[in-house]
Design a binder for these strands. Structure first.
Lengths: 204, 204
DNA sequence: GTCGGTTGAGACAAGAGTGTCTCGTGTTCT
DNA sequence: AGAACACGAGACACTCTTGTCTCAACCGAC
């Protein structure tokens, strides 16, 4: 007979109310503005005592790891099958940009953050769950003739990220509305990576 | 009567040999890999004692500011008139990418670093000296019909940065050779922002 | 009312980094 | 050789953050 369900093995957050989410939300906001903010600042921004903050996240690393995991999960869920599996690569990339822009906006913290810890299996798995379908989509587009096959998939992936960042920044700077930024980002990406583009000089 | 000229007001670096440059080079390398590296680590990497490091840069902020200034100056010099003032926007952007890629590679530190301190007049002036000609080039290309005028200049500038980052990353990952990355980056940028691209849906 | 559980405030030790300073050494110029 | 100078090593005080712990107050359930 398994141990009763109410015996939690790990320290486990005390309350089941939304406190953990509240802390996480505030932490994302504060660390997004000031990555080197102290636990005290995060606690204050969460409307919570520092001790309570440590009750939920026993370490600073724990906290940023939780943020990272949530961000990665959100990305993974934003890339649901109905987003990725459109008829054309163009439609799929259009949906991808639309789905990823809000997530990147939310997790501004991570935009300039060091790469996820590849030695953490959970993070590693999530990173792959996010990257692989996008790389697959790019390769599919190249095989299908919609995208220029001369771009290494990783390069194209990087351009996707760059365009998303640029769109985010332009929205944040008030240069474009989010609604307008989307088609512009789609246009820049698809034309930039699309087939039938200008010739590439053999080697400059 | 003013104090004699040989009484230096500021602490002023002791030696005129290449020590300061050596320190700066090492600091760029170390802080590029580990932005939170301590002064001790920087000193060790420079082959210099910590005390000597402080003799040249009296503060950690002093050091990173010096790095930033040098990076900005390098960028400014990379964007010399003969680079920017080509016949076509295409040629100019091609030259810009070629000139900026090595600089971005060198100052990897700053790629993910917080924005330069706008309250520091020297940094502010340099940032503008780098950004303005690029924004002007973009606008000129839009006016001349080479670039799609629907992109706000800041957005286009962001895409340029994103493509450069993607190219840098792809080179670092060994996905493309630097020689191959250049034409690909040019192609992605010019097709992405160029006129005669695919239609932009009015509002998606 | 009372009890169990959660909370905020704050004390606390430990560690790390910063910036200053001194001292003994080595080098260079004279 | 002697003077001047820059150096490395290291001691030092100081500050800041982290993570742990205690305690009194509070709240809901019974």
């Amino acid at each position: 007979m398994p141990p009763p369900a109410d015996i939690t093995v790990s320290p486990a957050p005390p309350a089941a109310d939304g406190t953990e989410e509240r802390i996480l939300d505030a932490a994302i906001r504060v660390l997004g503005e000031t990555p080197e903010a102290s636990m005290q600042e995060v606690a204050t921004a969460s409307g919570v005592g520092r001790a309570t903050l440590y009750r939920y996240f026993s370490t600073r690393d724990d906290l940023v790891r939780a943020i990272r995991l949530r961000a990665l999960r959100d990305c993974r869920e934003a890339l649901a099958p109905d987003v990725l599996e459109r008829g054309s690569t163009r439609e799929a990339l259009e949906a991808v940009i639309g789905a990823l822009l809000p997530v990147l906006d939310r997790y501004r913290v991570l935009i300039d953050a060091p790469l996820p810890d590849r030695s953490d299996p959970e993070q590693r798995a999530l990173v792959e769950a996010v990257e692989r379908p996008l790389l697959d989509l790019i390769r599919r587009g190249q095989d299908g003739g919609e995208l220029d096959p001369r771009f290494p998939a990783g390069f194209a992936f990087g351009v996707l990220g760059g365009v998303l960042r640029a769109a985010r920044a332009a929205i944040a700077a008030g240069e474009v509305s989010p609604e307008r930024a989307h088609p512009l980002a789609v246009r820049a990406l698809l034309a930039g990576l699309g087939a039938n583009g200008p010739e590439v000089p053999p080697c400059s």
